[in-house]
Computed example of a mutant assay.
Amino acid sequence: MAATVHDLPPTEDPAASQTVRAQARLRELIVSGELAPGARIPELTLVERLGVSRTPVRAALLRLQEEGLLEALPGGGFVVREFGEADIHDAIELRGTLEGLAARLAAERGCGAVVLAGLRDCLDRIDELLAREAIDDESFAGYAAHNGRFHRLLAEAAGSPTIRRQIERVVTLPFASPNGFVRVGAGAPAARDTLVIAQAQHHAVVEAIVQREGARAESLMREHARIARGKLDEALATQQGLQSLPGAGLIRRAGR
């Protein structure tokens, strides 16, 4: 549930919080298909719809352009981007490269005890979910929550604010999030298998970090990201798969 004004810390800048909320709501409108690819963004309409002034709306539009969801028009204004399959593959590959670098540096430099404990806690919680007899909606939601935390902790593990910031930027790219494809094929008999493989890679990369095996940790995380590429191909292969993929309407299908 979205935070209310009363939920915000007293020191938070109200203008900045309005921008963050406008950005989140605009992203929802785009991913849900309410603002279609190629559609010009109606700034004044958004001001009325979101109940904020033009300043936070304009700031939110600029941030979504930086994320890659919008394109600036030569004469001013923005349109919703459409993405080719190659664009998404590249975004996933970029995430894997950066996470691989973080894992390698964590192994070579040593991972802090607090971060390592957090990574192991994520492993334990996901193991508990995968031990259940059935992987239902609750299990998928739990997996996504712990998986997201695992990847955020991994970004911290290298002890490099620069690398952490770059990973935070890349995961905002459309379809590049570690959880972007978690629910694809959720109803299929093999749904658990993919999660089990991903979790085995989670365990292996943590072990590589502990053993100070930098090259192995890097290779594992790059391979881990490629699970998402396989899930993308799976999603694009069937109508049911597309329906399980948030933002599918933004994808330009090959040969279309």
Rank of each mutant, 00 (worst) to 15 (best):
119 L>N: 01
115 V>W: 02
159 G>N: 10
121 D>S: 09
137 D>A: 15
108 E>Y: 02
122 C>E: 10
113 A>T: 11
160 S>I: 09
147 N>S: 14
156 E>W: 00
147 N>C: 09
134 A>I: 12
145 A>I: 04
125 R>G: 11
135 I>N: 07
151 H>P: 03
112 G>K: 00
146 H>I: 02
102 A>L: 12
133 E>I: 11
153 L>Y: 05
137 D>G: 11
146 H>T: 11
103 A>S: 09
145 A>N: 00
154 L>C: 04
127 D>N: 14
141 A>T: 14
120 R>H: 12
147 N>D: 13
161 P>K: 07
126 I>L: 12
163 I>W: 03
110 G>L: 14
102 A>N: 06
149 R>K: 08
130 L>H: 05
140 F>N: 01
138 E>V: 12
155 A>C: 05
141 A>M: 08
120 R>W: 11
113 A>N: 07
164 R>D: 10
112 G>V: 13
123 L>A: 15
159 G>L: 13
157 A>D: 04
125 R>Q: 15
113 A>Y: 05
104 R>P: 00
161 P>M: 13
142 G>M: 08
149 R>W: 02
164 R>T: 15
123 L>W: 13
139 S>W: 11
122 C>H: 09
133 E>T: 14
146 H>D: 06
123 L>Q: 15
110 G>W: 04
117 A>I: 03
123 L>P: 02
117 A>N: 05
140 F>L: 13
143 Y>N: 00
150 F>M: 09
135 I>R: 06
106 A>T: 06
105 L>P: 01
138 E>C: 10
161 P>F: 14
107 A>N: 03
145 A>L: 08
142 G>N: 06
141 A>Y: 01
151 H>W: 04
158 A>F: 00
133 E>L: 14
114 V>K: 02
114 V>R: 05
118 G>R: 07
148 G>L: 03
137 D>H: 14
107 A>W: 00
157 A>C: 07
132 R>S: 11
116 L>D: 10
127 D>Q: 13
149 R>G: 09
112 G>D: 12
128 E>R: 15
130 L>A: 08
103 A>R: 03
126 I>Q: 13
127 D>H: 07
139 S>F: 14
142 G>R: 05
122 C>W: 03
154 L>G: 06
133 E>Q: 08
115 V>T: 11
129 L>D: 07
126 I>R: 13
160 S>N: 13
159 G>S: 10
164 R>L: 13
139 S>V: 13
116 L>A: 09
128 E>C: 11
154 L>Y: 00
134 A>K: 08
159 G>Q: 10
103 A>N: 04
164 R>F: 11
149 R>D: 10
137 D>V: 10
134 A>W: 09
115 V>N: 04
111 C>T: 10
124 D>K: 15
105 L>Q: 15
134 A>P: 00
133 E>C: 06
132 R>L: 08
144 A>T: 03
131 A>C: 12
137 D>I: 14
155 A>F: 07
148 G>R: 02
124 D>S: 12
146 H>S: 01
130 L>G: 02
148 G>N: 05
106 A>D: 01
109 R>P: 00
127 D>F: 08
153 L>K: 04
151 H>M: 15
135 I>P: 05
119 L>I: 13
111 C>N: 03
156 E>T: 00
135 I>M: 15
160 S>C: 13
142 G>P: 01
112 G>C: 12
127 D>G: 15
150 F>Q: 02
124 D>E: 14
152 R>N: 10
130 L>Q: 05
117 A>C: 00
133 E>P: 01
